[in-house]
Structures are given as C-alpha cells and as structure tokens.
Amino acid sequence: MSVDWKPKIVGFACRWCAYAGADLAGTSRMKYPPSIRLVRIPCSCRVDPSFVVRAFQRGADGVLVAGCHPGDCHYTTGNYLTRRRFSLAKRFIQYMGIEPERFRVEWVSAAEGGRFAGLVEEMTEDIRKLGPNRKMRERL
C-alpha cells in the first residue's frame, strides 16, 4: 500500500434528501474526509445494483448508496423498493467476496448534515483499515 493512498468512495445520493444533507454538511462548514465522490440521482431506487459492481470495477474502494428515510420518499415508495433490492444485493455482493465495510446503504435526510459527515468519516476510516480494493477491479 502506498503511503499516500486515500480511500476513494463513490456515493449515490438521492437529490431530495441525502444530496441535500451533504449540501447542508458543506454549508454548515462541517469537516469530513474528501474521500467521497457524490453522484446525484433522482431517487435511491434509481441505483441498479450493477452500478455498485461497476464502481468497484472502475477503482472505487467503497460505495455508498444513500436515500431518504423510509416513509419520506419524494416519490412515496421509491426507497421501499431500494430497501428490498439492496437488502439482497448487499448480501450478494458480500457473498461474491467484497468486504461488507466497503458497501453501505444508509438513509440520510436533508436535515442530517452531521449524520452524512459522520457516515463518510466512519466509512473512510473502515476502508482505510482494509486498504485499497483490488477485488472485481478492472485492469486496462
């Protein structure tokens, strides 16, 4: 592991809540590691589990899928579907050999800037302990 390696996390964030939560963390000048790259999506249920595999293929050390708390979905039921889908996918990706710390699904509301910052910090620390991800990694 090189000395200056820093975890790279791809975050899929629902534009109505988690993305706004991340925004709030920023505007509130909260500090958290610059390890996450956020992809804004209309709803957490837009995330196809293949996106997660693709992120690992292209060099992510961790993936975060973040959506509204159950009951708060802007589209009423989107995140209920996310919950089912990723309950399976999360276990399945681990079954294929990816460490569970590398892939998380979390609910973050637009008011939870602190929670978002905390999550990224926690995840970054977990992944730092694991080291860079080599699994499923594409070598071009």
Binding site: Y80, K90, P100, R104
Partner: peptide, 14 residues
C-alpha cells in the same frame, strides 16, 4: 415491498 420490511444489511460489519 411491505412497509415493515427489514433492512438486510443491519448488524453487519461497518
């Protein structure tokens, strides 16, 4: 889905 579905990832490491 059902409103009281479990979160399959709870309790796992990380």
């Amino acid at each position: 889905f059902s409103y009281d579905d479990p979160e399959g990832w709870r309790g796992e490491a990380g």
